[in-house]
Nucleic acid binder design. Structure first.
Length: 423
RNA sequence: GCCCAGGUAGUCUAGCGGUAAGGCGACGGUCUCGAAAACCGUUUCUUCUUUGGGAGAGCGCAGGUUCAAAUCCUGCCCUGGGCGCCA
């Protein structure tokens, strides 16, 4: 959420931000109108309440002295009915204002390039070189099925389209990656946490998933949402709190759940886009003046996983048209997928500045008073997509897949995945 | 799911119809060569402002009763304890 005072005092800054995000600015006009009306009624209401407080004290005093209070009480009854009217109006305007404020996206950082869509995202760096195959590389879904480590039919049978069962070395590889990532991030100084993935509405609003993206979320019958990313439970660990010791670095593995509404027809084969997937997340709470430096470091911490796995990747700086709702700046890390001859998103590292902190009310103390922290997060990494990258980049002509060296200790020293490894 | 006991400012606690009290912590000031102690002040949100400050809100959340609600009433949420059920 933005600072209402910023919208009030510099509406053009907000309008420009919306325009750069390819969004309409109409909301701002009605917001300013409601804000004006709200403050007018607030002033009138406060004046009447001041009077009520004064008279109420007089009545208390008169009663103590056993004097007549009837005329005062009658006077108050008139004031009270007007206060009630005004309070209703104030509440109404305030909720309208709040409703709009929750739907205004963050203002992009000055280092976020202006652009229309993903084609305008500048490449920041390219690391590693795509392997040159001496044979025709197979897509991961074919490799997975041939090795009997990915079972799409069984996933569809027990759940539906967009769910996959991992078997044997596939299941072990997924688990190994989770442990490997958590270990690396722990070494980098992040505290490991393991949070719930059923989340209440308040927390979902705190990080910005609600109210705007409700249709992308799974809602359980008793009002809980399934976490679409560990960002939600982990960032909200400090909801409504003061953080006494900054910075705080956390890492968490969770399952993530997304309805992928409106994404039908994209990545229908394989495990790139699933309704349920695993992710290891990095979350930082920092002082405002360090947040951009911390974003660089966080991105490098996520990249470290790809470097250790020896997977080629690149980093792009998302332009205003491609930037997420809550983010001020985002680096996407994209891993090379040989059969698509493309880099595909495997991590998204963002600085939200105080956008989430204001929504979730996460503050720290300064001599000048309480201040909102800056929050950051990034995937370190999406596990399923890492499996895709390993299967495709490490495949051999005979259909087996080499296991990256750093993962072997996590897989009992195994060096490869072959058909007969299945048990 | 049922029965108790609770939820008060950053934290701990008092108040149980009449301006939310006190301890601790943090920050600022006085004192000091410096520090500690002591003493004084501040501590959340909103709004107005002539920048000194004024006003309003705020006692888990939402309503209600009342001239007046932390206090009384209703519903809900959360925490602790007991009972039941249960992997």
């Amino acid at each position: 959420m933005l600072d209402l005072k910023l919208v009030r005092n510099s509406p053009d800054v907000v309008r420009h931000a919306l325009i750069n995000r390819n969004m309409s600015t109409e909301l701002i006009d009605s917001l300013l109108e409601y804000d004006k009306a709200w403050r007018e009624y607030l002033a009138e209401g406060d004046e009447l309440k001041h009077k009520r407080n004064v008279v109420t004290r007089e009545i208390a005093k008169l009663k103590k002295e056993n004097k007549d209070t009837l005329s005062k009480i009658e006077e108050m009854q008139g004031i009270n009915s007007r206060i009630k009217e005004i309070d209703d109006l104030i509440r109404d305007y305030k909720s309208k204002i709040h409703e709009i404020m929750l739907r205004i996206p963050n203002i992009p950082s000055s280092t976020t390039p202006i652009g229309k869509d993903e084609n305008d995202n500048p490449v920041v760096r390219v690391v590693g070189e795509p392997r040159k195959f001496t044979f025709t590389p197979q897509p991961h879904w074919d490799i997975g099925e041939a090795l009997d480590i990915l079972d799409f039919e069984k996933g569809a049978k027990i759940a539906g389209q967009g769910f996959t069962v991992y078997k044997g070395m596939g299941a072990k590889l997924e688990r190994a990656l989770v442990n490997f990532m958590l270990d690396v991030h722990s070494r980098q100084g992040y505290l490991e946490v393991f949070p719930p993935v059923l989340i209440n509405e308040k927390a979902m609003t705190g990080t910005g998933q609600l109210p705007k993206f409700k249709e992308d979320m799974y809602l359980c019958t008793d009002g809980y949402y399934l976490a679409p990313t560990a960002e939600v439970p982990v960032t909200n660990l400090y909801m409504d709190e003061y953080i006494e010791k900054l910075p705080v670095f956390l890492t968490a593995y969770t399952a993530c759940f997304r309805r992928e509404a409106g994404k039908h027809g994209q990545d229908t084969r394989g495990i790139i886009r699933q309704h349920q997937f695993n992710k290891v997340e990095l979350v930082k709470f920092v002082k405002p003046e360090t947040s951009y430096e911390e974003l660089e470091k966080l991105t490098l911490d996520a990249e470290e996983i790809l470097k250790l796995l020896n997977l080629p990747y690149r980093v792009v700086n998302l332009c205003t048209g491609d930037l997420g709702f809550s983010a001020a700046k985002t680096y996407d890390i994209e891993v090379w997928v040989p059969t698509q001859e493309k880099y595909r998103e495997i991590s998204s590292c963002s600085n939200f500045e105080n956008f989430q902190a204001r929504r979730a009310n996460i503050r720290f103390r300064t001599p000048e008073g309480p201040q909102f922290v800056h929050t950051l997060n990034g995937s370190g990494l999406a596990v399923g997509r890492t499996v895709v990258a390993i299967l495709e980049n490490y495949q051999r002509e005979d259909g087996s897949v080499e296991i990256p060296e750093v993962l072997r200790p996590y897989l009992g020293g195994e060096k490869e995945i072959r058909k007969e490894d299945l048990t």
